[in-house]
Write a protein that binds this DNA or RNA. Structure first.
Lengths: 345, 345
DNA sequence: CTGAAAGCGCTTACAG
DNA sequence: CTGAAAGCGCTTACAG
């Protein structure tokens, strides 16, 4: 493999001149620059990443720490991951993806071995044990997911409080008085999936303000149990006219559950979901829903991280918490409840 | 950050002794080894990855080149990716995930900069333009996905020929005479998704041998078009009694399509799918199906790659093509066709 | 505008 | 069994 020494020799200049000609960090005679560039082409020269990292203390690699919870639907993570890797590459960085169980060890390994210039943590828990290590690492870090304490890190997430409120508000505007919220499995919450109860609490609070009855449940993450869950919830609250879903499996199972019960959407029951539009398209989830904004969150997180790495953000600058506002993507699964229609009809 | 020099100083030995004590590459007095280990703990020493890579020409990083086709369901890729990253970590390697559009450039960049010790290519096309670069790279490479030419690389894939045959055979055993096969969108095939036509051709051939009528179609990748597609296929072949699905979106849309037509499974129509069991569980895909074996393929590929990297496979040893045999995971969506039942009843 | 040299932090023959 | 030294391939002050 060609080295910078080979380039220098072929171009007839010193190694430092070759290096500067390529980095542009000092003025170079155009003729010399041209000779160096020609040599690079001729030899197919690419700098050795390890040598460069050793000399500059920069790797141009980001560490991406994924975290998979039992009963959480893993493939949904890919959209965050691709947002991160694509944006990183656009900014000149590669991405080391770490999926190992023990995120703390992984973080220590990457930080201490100086394999990466910064970290993106995915699926951050309320009290995420990775954060202590991250705050002590020399590399900056950015989170996708809102923890209890945000000092020392930049945070990006969907605004789950606003999401819970929005779901209830929309139903309220339509005239609904009794709703059922189906969340992810309780396991997910126990393992630190704070977004689940953050959405649920906000919904509950808003419902109380508006005088709406809201029944909140955890649902299973797969068939056939989620189907049984849904039937149970509907049996328990026969007068509920709206369903809020923060659970992909529930959204997938609901159409056949409602069909079996002879309920039509939105005539008999209104539904609002919270999941990725991509899943909605491929898996025929026919409900108006709030998108996870995974790609957008991943990209924004990387932009902030790279700005910190490259010193474009003052070291003392305060950390940011950026929450994306939820928007309902309409698919026609909401309407006024039947009681209202009957009165007006 | 502590260096090996710091460790040596604290332990009161030379740098080479410290290095050998940690690598175990030469005999060390137990007492010396203990002192070095103590120093490592005290200082929290971790070797600098760049320096080590420079000295050894080994990075202990694998390059994972993903490839996303328009109209192919991206999240399905995550299961391959996690198989790779988990197995790599188990064997002591980290994984650089590359998702950029131009896989050839990415491969050249990683190979020439010596950022990785080997490559895993995902979703390999029939004539994959990455293979030329890979064959010339100094690092070994392994493919998940079977290309036309396999020289110089190790290959792992589900046996799609056997899959096509198995689907038809199973239907034949049950007494079906007329089947419909719904494949992924034509786009996927055009972009090199050879597995689509490999399965379809094998199914067609077997059907011809057995005297079964097989109607093959490309289906859309999302709603509502896939629902229209399915209705169109069923309208065109009202006497068909079995459906073979090589298309996730079709599997997700089918239940409601059949319900609307008043068809029951398996009484009125038998169905066999080909998709991941994980999707089946979460998205309520209620059909007997052949799993993609994504995790297994990713792991097997990494094991082979690491064996080559570490020289446990002779340089001249022939390359392997490992095809996993398909198995039908029963979910009760197949039965004898109604005509047969009627005759026997 | 260019070159010779030091240094980044490791590993590993070479000597003893 | 241990140490002094060279070398991996870069970048970047330091001189000129």
């Amino acid at each position: 493999m060609a080295t910078i020494g080979d380039v220098a020799r072929v171009a007839g200049v010193s190694r430092s001149t070759a290096s500067y000609a390529l980095s542009g960090k000092r003025a170079i005679t155009p003729a010399v620059r041209a000779k160096v560039e020609e040599a690079v082409r001729e030899l197919g020269y690419t700098p050795n990443a390890g040598a460069r990292a050793l000399a500059t203390s920069q790797t141009r690699v980001l560490g991406l720490l994924a975290r998979f919870l039992e009963d959480e639907f893993a493939p949904a993570m890919l959209q965050y991951i691709l947002g991160v890797t694509d944006e990183a590459r656009r900014l000149g960085y590669d991405t080391l993806l770490v999926s190992e169980e023990d995120g703390v060890r992984a973080l220590q390994r990457l930080a201490n071995s100086r394999m990466v210039d910064g970290f993106v943590l995915l699926n951050v828990a309320e009290r995420d044990d990775r954060l202590g290590v991250l705050r002590e690492a020399r590399q900056p870090g950015v989170l996708v997911g809102l923890p209890e304490r945000t000092s020392g890190v930049d945070v990006f997430d969907l605004d789950f409080v606003a999401t819970g409120r929005l779901m209830v508000d929309r139903m309220h505007e339509l005239g609904h008085h009794e709703l059922i919220l189906v969340s992810q499995p309780e396991h997910v919450v126990e393992r630190g999936g704070a977004y689940v109860w953050r959405l649920a609490n906000a919904a509950r609070e808003r419902a109380a303000q508006l005088g709406i009855g809201l029944h909140t449940y955890f649902g299973s993450s797969s068939q056939p149990s989620i189907g049984q869950d849904l039937n149970g919830f509907l049996d328990a609250h026969p007068t509920a006219t709206g369903l809020l879903l923060n659970n992909e499996a529930a959204a997938a199972a609901l159409p056949s559950v409602l069909a079996a019960r002879g309920l039509r959407i939105p005539e008999d029951i209104s539904v609002i979901g919270r999941y990725s539009d991509d899943f909605a398209r491929t898996f025929s989830l026919p409900f108006s829903s709030i998108d996870s904004a995974a790609d957008e969150l991943g990209r924004a997180a990387v932009q902030q991280l790279v700005a910190r790495i490259e010193g474009r953000i003052a070291a003392g600058a305060p950390n940011i918490v950026h929450l994306i506002s939820p928007e309902i993507h309409e698919r026609g699964s909401t309407a006024a409840p039947r009681e209202i229609l009957d009165q007006s009809g």
